[in-house]
Design a protein around this nucleic acid. Structure first.
Lengths: 332, 332
DNA sequence: GTTGGCTGTGCAATCGTTTGTATACGCATG
DNA sequence: CATGCGTATACAAACGATTGCACAGCCAAC
C-alpha cells in the first residue's frame, strides 16, 4: 500500500504537506500542490481510512439498521438512504435484524466498535432503550419511519395523516362500510394509522365502520383467512384498506377465491408503495409514502447533527400522496 | 471512550496484558486474565476497530456490491450474505450501483480505502477489469451469481443446467412451442440460460422452437409488449419461459389483457425465486435458485481465501430445483 | 541594515491497538 | 549458593494519517 510518505518522497516534500495538499482547508503553494497531486496520481495513493478514522475519532460511515430486507417495503428505503449517503460521500454498514430485538441489540453493539458517524434505524419494536443508549456515547442517530415522543430525531411518513387521507378518499368515493387491515400495535406505526382512520370516520360520523376493522393481521396468510371471513358476513364491507401492502397479496387471493371482482365487487386501497403494486391485477391504488424523501432526510438529519451539533431534535413528518390506479370504484 | 489503557489501569496491569487477555492466542495467568475481564466489563470497554484495523492492516468487514436492491431478486441474496457474514462476525458495507458501471468502479475505489477483508460482487456488466484489479491490491473477492472463465472465484446458480431443467420439464409436460424471454446478453447469465435452453431443445429435436425466443427483453414493459406481439401470431407458443421473474409481471398483465387464461391457454414458468412468486395469480411455477446457499458459500469462500490463502480459485455451481405451483398445464 | 510580520513547509506528537523484545521473578539443579 | 532456565508481564515501537507549533525565508518599512 502506498502511504502518505511514499507520496511525500516522490513529490520531494514532507508528509504534512501531502496531507495539507489533499485537505483543501489549508493553503499550500499552488506549485507544490500540483507536484503533490501528480505524485498522488502516479502512485494511485488512497488515504487509509483506518488511520484517518483513528486520528479523527470518526469515520465517514453510517450504520443502517432495518428489520427485514426481504420485506418488499425496505429495499426502497435502503436504496434512498444509500443514494443520499453516497452523494455525501458516506458509506453504509448494513444490519438486518430479522425483526429480532436481540439481533438489533447486537447490531448496536457491533456498530459502536466501528466508530460510525451516525446510525439510521428502523426499529423492530417499541423497545428502543438500546438505541437511546447511543446518545451516551455521542453517536448521533435518527429513527427511520418510526415516531417516538421525547428527545428523539426521526424522519417518517405522517402515518396518521396518510391514513386519514385514504379513508377520506374512500368515503368520498361513496364507501361507508370500510374494513381496515392492521398489523399488531407492537409496531406503533399501526397505532398511528389506526388513529388516522378513526379521525376520518369521526369527521364523517361513520364511526360504526370500526366494526369491520381487522386487528393483528400479521402476515399474508392471516390476511387471506380474515378477509374470507369478513366477506362472508351478511353485510360485508364495500372497501378494504390494507395498511401494509404485503398483505394485499393475501387479500387479492382471498377475493379471487371467493369469486369477487376488484373493484367491481370490492374496492381495495393500499398504504405502502411496493415495487409490485403497479403490477398487481388490477393495479393497486395506493397511498404512496415519500420513501425517497424519507431516506434522504434521514441522511441529511445525521449530517446536520454532525455539523451543526443541532441541539433540538428534528421531528420530520413527510406526507405522501394518493396514487390512483385501478382497484377502487366510485360507488353509485 | 474507554481505551485499553483505562482497563489496564483499573486492572493494575499494562496495556499489552489487556490486549493479550482478550486475544485468546497467548497465555496469560488465569488470575490476571480474570481481573482484566472484570475491568473490561466494568468499563464497558470496546476495542476500537479503527486502531485495530490500522495495526493489522485489515478489518472484519466485507463489501457487498449489487446492481439494484430494488430488483426483487437481490434482497434475498443480500439477506443470505448478511446472515452468514454476521454468523462469522463480519460486518457488511453495502454498495448499490444501479446497474451502472461507473458507479461500480467508484464503489471499488471507495471500498479499498476501508481495507475491507474481502469483496462480494454481483457485477453490473461483463466488464470486470476493475474487479480483477482488486487482486493486485491483495483484496480477495468472489463473484456472486456471475460466471467468468479464468482465474476467478465465483459462486453461482448453474444457469445453464437450471434452464435445461426448466425446458425439459415443459417438454415433458407436452409443450413443443416454447417461447423463452431473455434479457440482453451483456449480462452473461442470460447467455448461459440461453445455452441451457438450446441444449434441452436439441436433446429433444425441438430446435425449431427457437423462433419463439424473445431476446433483449429488458424490462417489464418490454416483456408486456413483446408477449402481446407473439401471442397474436397464428401459431402462438403454448408455454412461456420467463428467465427473469420481474418480467413475469408484464407477462401476466399481457395475457390478462388478451383474455388468455393461465395455465389453461398458456403455461408460464419462471426462473428466479422472487418473494412474490407464490402470490401471483395463479402462483408462478418456477425454478428456484438456491439463493441462501449461494450467499452463504460466497461468504465462506472469502473466509477460505483469507484463512487458507487458497491458491486455486473455487468455481462453485449450485443447482436449485423446480417448484411446481399453478402456472403450468400438462398438454393432452 | 536591522526589525517585524507574513507565508509556506517541516518536525514531532498523537489517535488506540498489537507485538517483538527485554526483564523480573521464581524455582530447580549442580 | 550461584547459575540457568522458563514463564508471565512490561516497555516501546509501529501502523498511517493529521495538526499545533516552530522555523526559514522573503519583503517592506523605518
Amino acid at each position: 500500500m502506498t502511504t502518505v510518505k511514499d507520496v511525500a518522497k516522490l513529490a520531494g516534500v514532507s508528509a504534512s504537506t501531502v496531507s495539507r495538499s489533499l485537505s483543501e482547508k489549508i493553503f499550500v503553494d499552488p506549485q507544490t500542490k500540483a507536484r503533490v497531486l501528480l505524485a498522488v496520481e502516479k502512485l494511485k495513493y488512497r488515504p487509509n481510512l483506518m488511520a484517518k478514522g483513528l486520528k479523527e475519532g470518526i469515520t465517514r460511515t453510517f450504520a443502517l439498521i432495518i428489520p427485514s430486507i426481504t420485506n418488499l417495503y425496505y429495499p426502497q428505503l435502503v436504496h434512498s438512504v444509500e443514494k443520499c449517503a453516497a452523494e455525501n460521500d458516506y458509506s453504509l454498514i448494513l444490519y438486518n435484524t430479522n425483526e429480532d430485538l436481540e439481533a438489533e441489540r447486537k447490531a448496536v453493539e457491533a456498530l459502536q466498535k466501528y466508530y460510525v458517524a451516525g446510525v439510521i434505524v428502523s426499529t423492530a419494536s417499541n423497545d428502543i432503550q438500546h438505541i437511546l443508549a447511543l446518545e451516551k456515547n455521542n453517536i448521533p442517530f435518527v429513527l427511520l419511519n418510526r415516531l417516538f415522543p421525547g428527545n428523539v430525531n426521526y424522519v417518517s411518513n405522517d402515518q396518521a395523516l396518510g391514513a386519514r387521507k385514504v379513508m377520506g378518499y374512500l368515503i368520498q368515493k361513496g364507501h361507508k362500510r370500510i374494513s381496515v387491515l392492521l398489523c399488531g400495535f407492537q409496531k406503533q406505526i399501526y397505532k398511528y394509522r389506526y388513529d388516522g382512520c378513526m379521525a376520518a370516520l369521526r369527521a364523517h360520523r361513520l364511526e360504526a365502520s370500526e366494526k369491520f376493522f381487522l386487528f393483528d393481521v400479521n402476515g399474508i396468510d392471516v390476511a387471506h383467512r380474515r378477509v374470507i371471513e369478513i366477506m362472508r358476513r351478511k353485510k360485508p364491507p364495500t372497501a378494504l384498506f390494507v395498511t401494509n401492502n404485503m398483505l394485499a397479496f393475501g387479500v387479492y387471493r382471498a377475493l379471487n377465491e371467493l369469486g369477487l371482482r376488484i373493484p367491481a365487487d370490492v374496492s381495495i386501497i393500499g398504504y405502502d408503495n411496493l415495487l409490485t403494486d403497479q403490477y398487481m391485477n388490477p393495479p393497486l391504488t395506493s397511498y404512496e409514502q415519500p420513501l425517497d424523501e424519507i431516506g434522504k432526510h434521514a441522511v441529511l438529519n445525521l449530517i446536520s447533527q454532525i455539523k451543526n451539533k443541532l441541539r433540538k431534535p428534528e421531528k420530520l413528518l413527510l406526507s405522501g400522496s394518493l396514487l390512483e390506479r385501478e382497484s377502487v370504484q366510485q360507488l353509485k
